[in-house]
Design a binder for these strands. Structure first.
Lengths: 251, 251
DNA sequence: GCGATCAGCGGCACG
DNA sequence: CGTGCCGTTGATCGC
């Protein structure tokens, strides 16, 4: 395909905000928050109506190079190469694909008003848990969810029957070290503001060994949350408190 | 385009591991770690040679639905619709695009052995900093970088001239609360193992106000790292310790 | 606009 | 394989 012709196809797509795909041999250069260079090879470049720019190889899920929406797309033919460029400010970034050969450059109008409906998100689980705190422990009563702290927000904030504050961190997947550190930060924040002792609980479908050690050292609790994702909606099937053998002997 | 013809194009692309793009009107359903549904609309579906599967709308950088590599791609025509499906195990997941109309279905062989060369990564900055610890403080000597801890790894581990342990966390972008909590975890881990006091330092191009408060409460230090990314390589241009006005008066 | 957090995070490197 | 963590993280929501 003639580069001149390809350039016109790109320009037309950009001005009409159509979905554009260019397939050909190119080199790619990125300068901005970082710097990257990709030597010549055959790739697919996609430019979307909102200025999103993607360079895809024929492997891996993610684009090897990209530019987020709102970029300004420019084209030029230089030195017998078609340059397609996406620039943006804040941060100042430029992504440039330089084609030595274009196999195809085509654009499509795409009518699509629909957005994704997703179930099984952490927010959904958090809301469900709020209505089911008795499953964790008798007398546990919800105070607030998404409780805003000066530093971050607590998934579920509750109070037990001895009126201790309880901070619950919900994770939709196996909890790791970061989950426990996060919980710790919230607990300490609440502890500082209240006179009473504060308990920390993680509700997740699992926890890594390291995270479990750390959790126990900090005196926090882990509840294994068994849930199922339906369409629409989800369901918490069970919650069982998990203690380790060791702790049973220690206690 | 005939759906039967589109199906053949997809099958051929999959068997030959070519880069496939299908443009048309479809509904999308995902079941696995979560569940999602996307009502009918015009989209671009991409299937790569390694089984990666992407559904792109004409907006946003990321695919609205996807399936990671190694998925098994199957097709069928059912109820006058072309179904393209990507399934995988561990976790068990299925992504399905059901086309009522296909505008185009084409595949391309893509020769590309090249991989990205990236500069300005955290690892690069960490290595540079290792050779420049004097810029932070006279007498600060590097011990190890990427020092593996039982819980995570320390970017740069050093010792000051009073032989205190110093844990340095490097961030390539502005440090937030999570950076400070991470640092805190490392410092406490080292503290537990050593008798001497342990200092915690964050080196980043900036820090958020909340994170700065938290950092000071914990007695940690922040060094503003001014760096430039070149091609190839990067350069740390300067490091200045930042104290807040308030602290100056307090001290 | 920045700040904090989630994500079906993905990807990588290491044990 | 799981664990941990970076990422040009992106996307979202709250301030």
């Amino acid at each position: 395909m003639e580069l001149q012709e390809a350039k016109q196809a790109v320009d037309k797509a950009v001005s009409s905000e159509e979905f554009l795909i260019v397939i050909g041999t190119c080199r790619v250069k990125y300068t901005g928050r970082a710097v990257s260079k990709l030597a010549e090879g055959e790739r697919a470049v996609i430019v979307k109506g909102d200025g999103s720019f993607l360079v895809h190889q024929n492997k891996n899920l993610k684009a090897i190079n990209y530019q987020p929406p709102d970029g300004v797309i420019t084209t030029e033919i230089n030195d017998d190469q078609l340059v397609v460029r996406a620039s943006r400010r804040n941060p100042e970034e430029v992504l440039e694909a330089k084609f030595s050969e274009v196999k195809e450059a085509k654009s499509f109008d795409m009518d699509d008003d629909n957005s994704l409906k997703m179930f099984g998100t952490e927010e959904e689980l958090s809301n469900l848990l709020m209505q089911d705190l008795e499953h964790i422990e008798k007398g546990l009563r919800p105070i607030k969810n998404e409780s805003p702290l000066s530093k971050g927000k607590i998934d579920v904030f509750a109070r037990d029957k001895e009126r201790n504050n309880v901070v619950i961190e919900v994770k939709r997947r196996k909890a790791g070290l970061d989950a426990v550190t996060q919980l710790k930060r919230y607990v300490e924040e609440v502890d500082k503001r209240k006179e009473k002792n504060t308990r920390g609980i993680i509700c997740a479908p699992g926890i890594t060994p390291n995270a479990c050690d750390f959790l126990e050292e900090e005196g926090f609790e882990f509840y294994e949350m068994d849930y199922e994702v339906h369409n629409p909606g989800s369901e918490i099937k069970g919650l069982k408190g998990k203690q380790r053998m060791l702790k049973d002997f220690d206690g």
